[in-house]
Design a protein around this nucleic acid. Structure first.
Length: 798
RNA sequence: GCCGAAGUGGUGGAAUUGGUAGACACGCACGACUCAAAAUCGUGUGGGCUAGCCCCAUGAGGGUUCGACUCCCUCCUUCGGCACCA
């Protein structure tokens, strides 16, 4: 007999699991499978803090729970190891990113092993391993061959600090998501992935996902589908025309001017000669402004081109302006402006004295205050007057369609994905540029295109990556004609490796294909995906896109990679996110040392509802540590002299099974812990053997080391994870006595203990005799009695 | 500005087809053990007063209901997302 000593038992069982390979994924096709995946981390130099652990504990609890339920569980871990921090480190200290990455991985792995997580390390993957990125490049080639990867000269978001182009998704509020520097627009020839081709599929199949509402909403609004029409405005005294996209065809009669984005290709062509100087000045100014400056300017700016368009519904001549409030990369880069019914147009028209014609009245026929953006009834619209907005849209569109002046159109906010980075530490894009043959994909047999060593990691900032300086790597021969050619020197973004990694875990060493089709079929898609909500759009959208593409080329047979998603909340300290720079990081290593991994695991669960942010309190872990000790002592006491099970203990035991199972299933893991605490508090001096056994198995997913130790104390020779998750006997869950609340006019005056199936009259008789109830009823007349069996009885009195 | 989530003791939180608000834990107080402390164990702990068979109380105000943390309306605060997307 001795006190609870985690320092002894935790290493012991970790070694045991290791030696007996208990965390290796089994291969028994007769069993149902469960694929439980963590978002793999970027192995940073700062190591893991208790906030990171929350998700890992959660997924581990589920993996162990499913194992106990007889599932064959795949629970792997790996490294999303390409990325800027390692590269910036390399620039600053001259350490090769591979060296620092390897060092960081060792530390991460040690920490993960210390929580006792049941990862199958034989399946560990690393996105920077050529054996892995060979397939990242392979997927790119397939996309290229299917016309989904293309190169385009375009103004992209460029971070002057990271010296690389960024995807739209990586720009948050006009600044670089990574370093917070204001991004600039820069014309660069970029590799793009045609994610917009999948826009509708990405939107539609959101419906099929068991994901947090919030994430679904974010993806939906990111994709930003809107339905409307392309309407053609011919240009007066010209053969050209301007097409605009609008969702409000019903307001066409109110269109009093047109606006082109400064970058619009027709601007120069249509500008009147006497306006050329003014227009040029305006464009030059607009183009040098950053995105932030463009948005920040309070006042609308613009310039008249001197040209006029013809409104297709009434033949009116309306002026054509240029303004930077129209975006070149949405719709056609041109709009029809309806100042009466659009706030932005109103502001602009007001400033430049352009006429404002209301064409929508409220449903009761009043002309509302302008700008009025709601729908209503048409006015000033010729033969369409009096139609509702909805009806008018259909009719006007139909009439214009007949004349070939409009057609139904759909636009998305989502843009194609800027896929190239001018950085070193990423997957080389497997393309060769040949003066004669043009872009030539590297033959699949020559993959991977290895990332060469360089002497200088410094980005050039010229639109070329540091790879461009390595002549013997860049210079190669064309796979088609054999003549001298050059390699593509851009690399892929960090997201590339994480788009498909869930597939690689099922067959990580395969060098013939991405993964064995049988294994893909058996294990994927992922049943439960656990990670932070910060990836709600970026990673999860890209990964869904990749999966749909892989379905189209026959690699997988489903559209969605992650059936169920769970976002764990952040753990804060002093109400702010933990970070090294804020100096508020709680290091798990010391806590493991002091309280043990089981206590830390338990506190990570107990701290609060797993999906919401929770504040870290050092005293909190004390509480669960004490609980574990009380539990341990209860075991020791009980084993000295085991009592026999009683009807009462059996009921409590079965109720515990039901409660714990239900709460794990519904992810109420904080209340799982409190259920155990209540059980122990009610247990009395000793527990019978059956109760102890049940308790140990139920605890095993949460506190695996402790459970394994106690399982041996109960006389078992095998791992507790070979045991079966118990099932509650429904007969034992029925209660025969309940406490019923007695209310008078809805106020609880007393409680009364009655048989569960007691009739109203019985409860009523017992209730009215309770002094406090009697007093409340005195001198009053009971007009109504509400009786909810097993819950309340309420006397309504007057 | 638009969309969404949340607001419960000193603290973290529990309670949902509307039915005893505050489980469980932290903290605190008192007691036991001890020379003492720590640890441990036990008891108490939403607020108020006139101390009861009382009143008030789930961000504020209203509503529905026999009964509201829970449903509806208005507002406040905090957090998250989007933001000149036509």
């Amino acid at each position: 007999m001795g006190g609870y000593n985690h320092r002894e038992i935790e290493p012991k069982w970790q070694n045991y699991w290791d030696e007996n390979q208990l965390h290796m994924t089994t291969n028994d096709p007769s069993k149902p499978k469960f694929y439980c995946l963590d978002m793999f981390p970027y192995p940073s130099g700062s190591g893991l803090h208790v906030g990171h652990w929350r998700g890992y504990v959660l997924s581990d609890v589920w993996s162990r729970y499913k194992t106990l339920q007889g599932y064959q569980v795949l629970h792997p871990m790996g490294w999303d190891a390409f990325g800027l921090p390692a590269e910036n480190d390399a620039i600053a200290k001259g350490i090769h990113p591979r060296i620092s990455t390897e060092r960081n991985i060792i530390n991460f792995k040690r920490q993960l092993q210390e929580i006792g997580a049941m990862y199958d390390w034989s399946r560990e993957i690393d996105t920077t391993d050529p054996k892995y990125y060979k397939w990242t490049q392979w997927i790119f080639l397939q996309m290229y061959k299917h016309g989904l990867a293309y190169r385009k000269e375009m103004p992209i978001n460029f971070c002057p600090s990271c010296l690389t182009g960024l995807a739209n998704e990586e720009v948050v509020g006009g600044v670089c998501e990574r370093c917070g520097t204001q991004v600039e627009k820069k014309m660069l020839k970029q590799w793009m992935l045609k994610i917009t081709e999948y826009a509708d599929r990405l939107l539609d199949s959101l419906k099929t996902l068991d994901w947090p509402e919030k994430v679904l909403k974010m993806q939906e609004s990111w994709i930003g589908r809107s339905e409307g029409a392309d309407v053609k405005f011919s240009i007066a005294d010209s053969t050209k025309s301007i097409t605009v996209f609008t969702t409000r065809v019903d307001t066409l009669f109110g269109a009093t001017y047109l606006v082109l984005a400064p970058e619009h290709e027709l601007v120069n062509e249509i500008t009147n000669s006497d306006r050329t100087a003014a227009v040029q000045d305006y464009i030059n100014e607009a183009l040098t402004k950053s995105a932030v400056e463009r948005m920040a300017s309070k006042e609308k700016t613009g310039v008249f081109t001197g040209a006029y368009g013809i409104n297709p519904v009434n033949g009116e001549k309306i002026p054509i302006w240029v303004s930077d409030y129209v975006l070149i990369d949405y719709g056609s880069g041109a709009i029809m402006a309806v100042p009466a019914h659009d706030e932005r147009d109103f502001e602009f028209a007001d400033r430049f004295n352009i006429s404002i014609i209301p064409v929508i009245a409220t449903d009761d026929g009043n002309i509302p205050e302008l700008p009025y953006e709601e729908e209503g009834r048409l006015i000033n619209s010729d033969l369409y007057n009096n139609l509702s907005s909805d009806k008018a849209r259909k009719v006007i569109l139909k009439d214009l369609e007949k004349k070939g002046l409009a057609k139904r159109a759909v636009q998305y906010k989502m843009r194609d994905w800027v896929f190239s980075r001018q950085r070193y530490w990423g997957e080389p894009i497997p393309i060769i540029h040949c003066p004669a043959c043009g872009e030539v994909p590297v033959p699949e047999s020559e993959l991977p295109v290895m990332l060469p060593d360089v002497e200088n990691y410094q980005p050039t900032g010229t639109g070329e990556s540091p790879l461009a300086a390595i002549d013997d790597w860049v210079n190669t021969t064309c796979p088609l004609c054999g003549e001298n050619a050059k390699r593509e020197t851009n690399t892929m973004p960090q997201w590339a490796g994480s788009c498909w990694y869930f597939l690689r875990y099922v067959d990580p060493d395969n060098d013939k294909e991405l993964a064995d089709p049988q294994k893909i079929k058996y294990w994927t898609p992922v049943d439960l995906y656990v990670g932070g909500v910060e990836h709600a759009v970026l990673h999860l959208l890209y990964s869904r896109f990749y999966t749909m593409f892989l379905k189209d080329i026959g690699i997988v047979d489903y559209e969605e990679p992650f059936t169920r998603l769970f976002n764990q909340g952040m753990i804060t300290k002093d109400s702010i996110k933990m970070s090294k720079s804020k100096g508020n990081v709680v290091n798990p290593d010391e806590l493991v040392q002091h309280y043990g991994a089981d206590s830390l695991r338990l506190y990570e669960l107990f701290i609060g509802p797993p999906e919401v942010d929770s504040e870290w309190m050092d005293s909190g872990i004390e509480g669960v540590y004490r609980f574990i000790q009380r539990l341990w002592n209860l075991f020791e006491r009980s084993l000295e002299q085991l009592p026999q099970p009683t009807q009462e203990s059996e009921k409590r035991r079965n109720r515990l099974i039901a409660t714990i199972t239900e709460r794990i299933e519904s992810f109420k893991l904080n209340t799982v812990v409190s259920a155990f605490m209540e059980f122990i508090n009610d247990a009395g001096e000793r527990l019978d053997k059956k109760s102890l056994e049940t308790l140990v198995v139920l605890l095993a997913p949460m506190t695996p080391h402790l459970a394994e130790e106690l399982w041996r104390k109960l006389g078992y020779e095998q791992s507790v994870f070979q045991a079966k998750w118990p099932k509650a006997d429904p007969k034992m869950l029925v209660v025969d006595e309940v406490i019923v609340a007695v209310q008078v006019n809805g106020k609880t005056r007393a409680t009364v203990k009655v048989a569960v199936d007691a009739e109203e009259s019985q409860v009523s008789d017992a209730a009215v005799n309770i002094p406090s109830v009697k007093n409340s009823l005195a001198g009053k007349q009971v007009v109504k009695t509400i009786f909810v069996p097993g819950r309340i009885i309420n006397f309504v009195v007057r």
